[in-house]
């Protein structure tokens, strides 16, 4: 087998890989931010005493979590315009990833909610906090702290899933790497560098989240 490594061609386009990484990160941040709001709402709905809310949350998770992200992205980009909702490729990917991460985060937050001791909730009610005040001031902070470790996992997973945006020609890291690969035929070099960038970004995200865990010690 004859293959000598020449990284020069990849380094020449390194700025495109970096801008691809930035686009992927930006898409993931926007999507996960929206997904976090969706997940929080759906998780509270999932444990609410009102059956219609519980059913709605259950339906959301069942529909979205059981679809591959790629299918969701293709639906958003190619199918929605057919019914008059035209989104550009960034919007449709961010929207799809937001919905997708929201479904996963619903389960993460729901587990966190179940971990809040019932007695602590009763204590909040007993001093006269309303249900909403209790959820905002007592349940949410405890739940978020308990959910932090699995939250980190989900965030990293969602960032890596930004590579799926390549399928609709969003110029993020995987898309750029594939172009460089095709242009230079430097297969091993291109994908090694791209992998290195993914790993580095994930290590940084994980370190940030661990810092957050240390900042808010376990109760």
């Amino acid at each position: 087998m004859e293959y000598s490594l020449h990284f020069g061609a990849v380094w020449a386009s390194f700025d495109r890989l970096l801008s691809g990484l930035a686009i992927g990160l930006a898409l993931a941040v926007v999507a996960v931010a929206i997904g976090t709001v969706l997940g929080l709402l759906a998780a509270f709905a999932a444990v609410s005493p009102y059956r219609p809310l519980r059913s709605l949350a259950g339906l959301y998770v069942a529909l979205i979590r059981n679809l591959p992200l790629l299918v969701l992205v293709l639906l958003a980009y190619f199918a929605l315009p057919q019914i008059g909702i035209a989104l550009d490729k960034y919007q449709s990917f961010a929207g799809a990833l937001a919905l997708y991460s929201g479904a996963y985060l619903t389960e993460v937050f729901r587990a966190g909610l179940l971990s809040v001791p019932k007695g602590v909730i009763e204590a909040a009610r007993s001093i006269g906090l309303t249900r909403l005040q209790t959820n905002v001031s007592v349940v949410a902070p405890i739940m978020l702290r308990n959910a932090l470790p699995s939250l980190g996992n989900t965030f990293i997973g969602m960032f890596k899933d930004s590579s799926i945006a390549a399928a609709i020609a969003v110029p993020e890291l995987t898309f750029e790497a594939r172009k460089i690969n095709v242009d230079t035929f430097r297969v091993i070099e291109t994908w090694t560098v791209a992998s290195g960038l993914y790993i580095a970004a994930c290590v940084v995200i994980a370190a940030l989240l661990r810092g957050l865990e240390r900042r808010f010690p376990k109760f």
Binding site: P117, G119, V120, E122, A123, A124, R125, S126, I127, G128, L129, T130, R131, Q133, S137, V138, P141, I142, R145, F219
Partner: peptide, 30 residues
């Protein structure tokens, strides 16, 4: 119900302090 609950105070067998708030924060929340 919340308004009426505020008229009585309750101390529980298992304390049930808010774990994310300091001692002062626990007293201050209500």
């Amino acid at each position: 119900l919340s308004r009426q609950r505020a008229m009585t105070g309750m101390v529980f067998q298992s304390f049930n302090l808010f774990p994310h708030l300091s001692a002062a924060g626990n007293v201050m929340l209500g």
